[in-house]
Design a protein around this nucleic acid. Structure first.
Lengths: 345, 345
DNA sequence: TTGAAAGCGGTACCAC
DNA sequence: GTGGTACCGCTTTCAA
């Protein structure tokens, strides 16, 4: 018996031109769209007979039905999307760890975290782009939106805006992370150990001023009222730049350096050693971020250990804020910084 | 005279309860919603008088109107969202750089990149969650969805699914990045330099097997047909674990190590040196990923330099695939790996 | 040049 | 138990 190809029995090879909707499921199951919705959402208020439930589930599975999030949240008037602009700075292990912990914690609370790639959008323009997605909350790392941006987000339904940065913005919750404290701790440490002419490495790379400027400010603050001085040392993250800096080291007359972070510290340490400068004998050196690599250097690198807020705490804050959008914005300093004294200082 | 608070004259302090819609704008401007849409989207087909345009723009600005992306894409039947599941592995500088380049390039093509935090979702379940957002394309780093997952995504409107991982999936474009080549290059290099008993460091950390397993396989492959052997060396990313490994080093009888990547290599190098093992004299050492830190070690660390696909190329591939979803899936090996011979091997 | 209205896909109220 | 139906906010014919 010859098998005649039946178009309706072979939907597989040629993909259907558009996604199946709940109406398709309803048709196939021989019920109404309402019933499909009830069944698929396990509506507690409505009782659906077991045979019907099965028919609906079978139809949905057969069609490969996937609900349309946009339609759903349009109807519902809200979503459970937490939007985070993708950071403009290169994410190190600290931030990566924080982020994945946060995603996990928000996921447990049934929120969906979405990192939005806002390239080249600035200020209110960025806020508007985020607002188009109608997130229930917005978490902004780094330089946050201005007060107008926050207002835009709230007017378009964001029940919480949280900034993670150096300054609080009106109307938004603020987890204050002023990196000045990092520079302050580092340089205070150096001063306490008797150093007086202190260099502060400033990365030449773009996107880092956001951290380096406050760290420098903190360093300046730490020498206030002492006879110690701070000197800026621009440095690109490459060997030759470090070598050039090391070559003119004697002329700088420094007896200590706070190197922005452990990576720049490592770069500089190697260059200094190659140039015959003894660390910490001639020049004390301290980094920041407490990366594993610092522990492995010779001498072991002193550093400033950072304590970021826990993802769980931040998730809880978001959840609280979402439930009570009217509450006064929280404003909390969350950046812990403690010196880890090892061998280089 | 007592000031009686007038609710209607003071909309500022108490935020409006819901977001302004295009109907609100229309009402305020004294036009229809259609006109608002025309004006705000600069519809070329329809000419709107200049005074009307101004009235609409003014009204929109005054209300802080932001269009509702969900409603828009629901009506349009498609979006320009490119979805990427947030990677399950800790993102290093390589991946971060690649990602931001990709975001930039896709942004230039007017796509919006969204990283979706799919915590604890696996297989088809994850694919369904992604499909709910009806992205125009899905880019999956690491372990991609199965063929069924791809089918789900395509049926719900994704015009392109691209995997960036070790194996091609039916129906999806594949940028093949089989890390076996990394292990192969590293170990071949060691063998060529006369080493025979070769250790391969396997990170004990979760989420890395995805890279470490293929790298080990490649290493095994490289000794096939030679008299060299490969020994697995489990190692946690902490000093004490490295010290323990170094302590029993002599008993292992190895004359070379491929250390998974530069970070583990650095960890091991320090421990070996502390234990009196000379590198490369007693044991040659090679890492991978060509991180800056390797260049700064003594001896300078040999490594395997990885070449990831450029963000621009991948963006172009996505754009092509979106325009011609019917085309045969591209399948291309994109992971370049070349040994950088320095001093440790 | 502008407006009325249909409809995208789901949900939930109200009848039956 | 189940179905009809009115929305959610926006775009886009089609008429006026």
């Amino acid at each position: 018996m010859v098998q005649i190809p039946n178009p309706s029995s072979a939907p597989e090879p040629s993909a259907p031109r558009s996604a199946p909707t709940s109406a398709d499921v309803a048709r196939l199951a021989g019920v109404s769209r309402a019933t499909v919705s009830y069944v698929l959402n396990n509506a507690g208020a409505v009782r659906i007979s077991e045979p019907t439930r099965r028919r609906v589930h079978d139809a949905a599975r057969e069609l490969g039905y996937v609900p349309h999030a946009a339609a759903r949240s349009l109807r519902a008037g809200h979503s459970r999307t937490v939007l985070m602009p993708a950071p403009s700075f290169p994410a190190g292990p600290l931030y990566s760890g924080f982020l994945s912990e946060l995603q996990w914690a928000l996921g447990r609370l049934d929120y969906t975290v979405v990192q939005y790639g806002s390239v080249g959008l600035h200020g209110d323009e960025a806020a508007r782009a985020w607002a188009e997605l109608r997130p229930v909350a917005v978490l902004v790392p780094g330089r946050g939106p201005g007060p107008r941006g926050v207002e835009i987000l709230k007017r378009s339904g964001a029940r919480a805006v949280v900034t993670l940065g150096p300054e609080a913005v009106k109307g938004a919750h603020a987890l204050l992370m002023d990196h000045a404290v990092v520079g302050h701790r580092a340089v205070r440490h150096l001063v306490e150990r008797g150093r007086r002419r202190i260099g502060v490495v400033m990365p030449a790379e773009d996107g880092l001023e956001f951290f380096s400027a406050p760290r420098l400010a903190g360093a300046r603050d730490a020498v206030r009222g002492t006879d110690a001085t701070v000197t800026e040392l621009p440095l690109a993250h490459e060997e030759r730049a470090a070598a050039r800096l090391a070559d003119r080291w004697d002329s700088l007359g420094l007896d200590a350096v706070f190197a922005y972070n452990d990576e720049y510290a490592m770069l500089l340490m190697r260059a200094l050693q190659d140039a015959g400068v003894r660390v910490p004998g001639d020049t004390a050196l301290i980094g920041a971020d407490d990366l594993m690599l610092g522990r492995l250097l010779r001498p072991r690198l002193s550093t400033v250990h950072l304590e970021l807020p826990s993802g769980r705490d931040l998730a809880a804050l978001v959840d609280r804020a979402v439930h009570d959008p009217g509450a006064a914005p929280e404003r909390r300093e969350v950046l812990g910084a403690t010196v880890v004294h090892r061998e280089s200082s």
